[in-house]
Nucleic acid binder design. Sequence first.
DNA 1: ATTGGCAGTCACGAAAGGCGAGTGCTAAAG
DNA 2: CTTTAGCACTCGCCTTTCGTGACTGCCAAT
Lengths: 343, 343
Amino acid sequence: MVSQRSLDVLRVIVQDYVASREPVGSKSIVERHSFGVSAATIRNDMALLEEEELIAAPHTSSGRVPTDKGYRVFVDQLADLRPLTSAQRQAIGAFLGASADLDDVLARTVRLLSQLTHQVALVQYPSLSTSHVRHIELVPLSTTRIMSVFITDSGRVEQRMLDVAGPLDEAFLSELRARLNAALGGLGLAEAVEGLGSFADQFSRERHPLVSQIAASLVEQIGANRQDRLLMAGAANLVRTEEDFTGSIFPVLEAIEEQVTLLRLFGEMSADQNGVSVSIGRENAEFGLGETSVLTSGYAASGGAVARLGVLGPLRMDYSNNMAAVRAVARYLTQLLGEHPGA
Amino acid sequence: MVSQRSLDVLRVIVQDYVASREPVGSKSIVERHSFGVSAATIRNDMALLEEEELIAAPHTSSGRVPTDKGYRVFVDQLADLRPLTSAQRQAIGAFLGASADLDDVLARTVRLLSQLTHQVALVQYPSLSTSHVRHIELVPLSTTRIMSVFITDSGRVEQRMLDVAGPLDEAFLSELRARLNAALGGLGLAEAVEGLGSFADQFSRERHPLVSQIAASLVEQIGANRQDRLLMAGAANLVRTEEDFTGSIFPVLEAIEEQVTLLRLFGEMSADQNGVSVSIGRENAEFGLGETSVLTSGYAASGGAVARLGVLGPLRMDYSNNMAAVRAVARYLTQLLGEHPGA
DNA sequence: ATTGGCAGTCACGAAAGGCGAGTGCTAAAG
DNA sequence: CTTTAGCACTCGCCTTTCGTGACTGCCAAT
């Protein structure tokens, strides 16, 4: 049985360790916090916590350090996040206030988040899977080459080049553009792909191969871009916290640059009651991030597109502040993208 | 007077030091290379090199290490770069072979370059300043909101949202689109901006404010995007070579994430006869990169857009191989972008 | 100009010793 | 049963010391 006071002891151990980077001993606890009991009593509680594997001693006679499990219990106890300071709120507004397009907003967001948390920040591009076709544009580049621009209501724009078999005149391209938008405008991406399957059938035998080719390219374009991208900022912060990693941070940086891994990790994280999901230490082992914690929150772009953003850092981080920052930024971003669809 | 043999000694000092990371002494030189002279003679040459400040001794009685100036002389002596190995050439082809759009090509390029050189790789987006207007598209998002898509012949696509004062109908939007493209298509960006200045004058008094607003937004869109972006990959390599930096690599990573600084540095580097420009150590001091070397080469996208790509790493790097890689990738990229305009 | 010899310098690594923070345990008190 | 004070013990860390080895600089001879 773990008493309430024991949990309080765990809390201050995590807090003090995060603040000082040094194993915390019973004596320093009683002199820094008002528990109203003696160091010996704290020692008894600490022995209990050690039995539960919530804390561990690096050396036989040193203070204690939280284990992965200890951080987990600590985080789960953080029921209420204190809101950000007004200075931080202002920073969010100032940073994200006036932005032109989605690329810009997300680029600013990731930098902002990294500055607020002093960790590596990550922002996933909104998934296309739940968004809808806003507009398709075909732009002639030469007589046998066109650029197709594909715009969704989540504000994403994807362009692609295509060499076509036969020559194309502007009139036919206009017709094609009009028919494409009539047929696909407003559809979800899956429906659009379906619609493209039979799209060419409405054209003459003569035109059919050409239109088929273009339709196939569009299908590919839609499908290919469903694989999301990830923005990163604040890699320098990882170096700053280098001492918190037992070995080198090299493998960590490698894993971060391997976006596929992170996207998989993002995919497996779901929101808890605060909207912020936390994955700690060995919980990330399969991603090569066994020594890091990842905090994420979902955010919604318009068009129903959802994605995640968050931060990554050493186990020894300020969970409280960082979770609040992630939550606040996600909320602000959702609000911003909701207000100005696609912007 | 610095004899030819002295320069040869400098060369092997750089080579051995790069290979071993240890100060190189006279004895190890004579036993690893066939100079046909004794260690004492080498020592005399080394004393000469030291007088010229091309090498220095970390401690009174240790081997010698090249200085910034020494690396500079070494690099300038590398008249002919040996071409890449066939395996490397194949890697370039395989990596960049099939790519959809400019974003994709550049993203692959930067990763490729980082893998070839084992350093941080940087690729600058082609500057818009010398490219031309390919197409302007206006997409209605709601009655008072449009998205303008701006396509250049260098393959870049920029989108932007705009709230307009009055309601817009589709017919007028079509007219506007047609007139915009008629007026601006093919113009250089500077000319396009000029043309937009008086563009609204051809419309009725009633339409004038609306068109003015759209034109102004387009001008802003063109201007704003002239500020280039930079792709980076291989930050993990900096960590791997951390020991080559006297202090922490933190400020280096910070400088790298501050794209503005790097773009300024890129701007100041011009090509030498090999097409590869090298900036060594303190030559980069004003950018906070006094302990790094930067190798860059220009490349050309279609539409006359030019930009630079390159790598950044510690002074102690394999200049010969890395310069060859930068040159090869720049050439390949130029070729690829030339073949498939905008792709 | 080149070479062999030799004394001198100095960083680096290993070994030793002292310090001190912190623990676990025990016995007594509330 | 919980809490407290006291105490012996452990062990990482820091500092000091010392020996080793690599390399240089100089000098005299070729």
